[in-house]
């Protein structure tokens, strides 16, 4: 599975309404949980796993992008949940001005190769200043989706 195969219009939210890192993660996980029909307990477990990973070191990058991720037991295929915030969220340390673009990647435990390829593709495409500017200015989930399939 590639990044493009993992992107799902129903797993994109514009704009995000949360203003703290944990709330952003919860908002993104909720989107996934609704789509996948997960029980509240599983949703909480995913949020905890992602936050535990963030505690090792923030996944906030340059250009206002953050790529929180975790391997989740019971996830059958890699899911990419995208959220764009109108205002920057202080994600992790104060080295960056804050993040507006979030890619939450939830991967199965048993396919490290695919997980790495998808994360690497996100990092690579976000190295383009133009692409990031277009993502930032996206008004709807459709706009975001279209940017990848242009």
């Amino acid at each position: 599975m590639t990044l493009l195969e993992a992107i799902d219009k129903n797993l994109i939210k514009v704009p995000l309404t949360s203003s703290s890192p944990k709330d952003v993660i919860e908002e993104l996980v909720s989107l996934y949980a609704d789509k996948a029909g997960l029980l509240a307990g599983k949703k909480d477990e995913i949020v905890s796993r992602v936050m535990a990973r963030e505690s090792l070191g923030s996944t906030a990058m340059e250009k206002g992008i953050a790529i929180p991720h975790a391997k989740i037991d019971g996830v059958s295929k890699t899911a990419v949940i995208i959220g764009i915030s109108r205002l920057p969220v202080q994600f992790g340390d104060s080295e960056h001005k804050g993040s507006r673009i979030f890619f939450l990647v939830l991967a199965p435990e048993d396919n490290p190769s695919e997980h790495i390829q998808i994360l690497a593709s996100i990092a690579k495409i976000c190295s383009s200043d133009l692409f990031v500017r277009m993502l930032e200015s996206a008004k709807t989930a459709d706009d975001v989706y279209q940017l990848f399939f242009d």
């Binding site: 090792l56 070191g57 923030s58 996944t59 906030a60 990058m61 790529i67 991720h69 790495i116 390829q117 994360l119 690497a120 996100i122 990092a123 690579k124 190295s127």
Partner: peptide, 12 residues
């Protein structure tokens, strides 16, 4: 890819 992810701060 692993090295690039560390460089981009996606991986610790």
């Amino acid at each position: 890819a692993l090295s690039e992810l560390v460089k981009a701060r996606v991986f610790v």
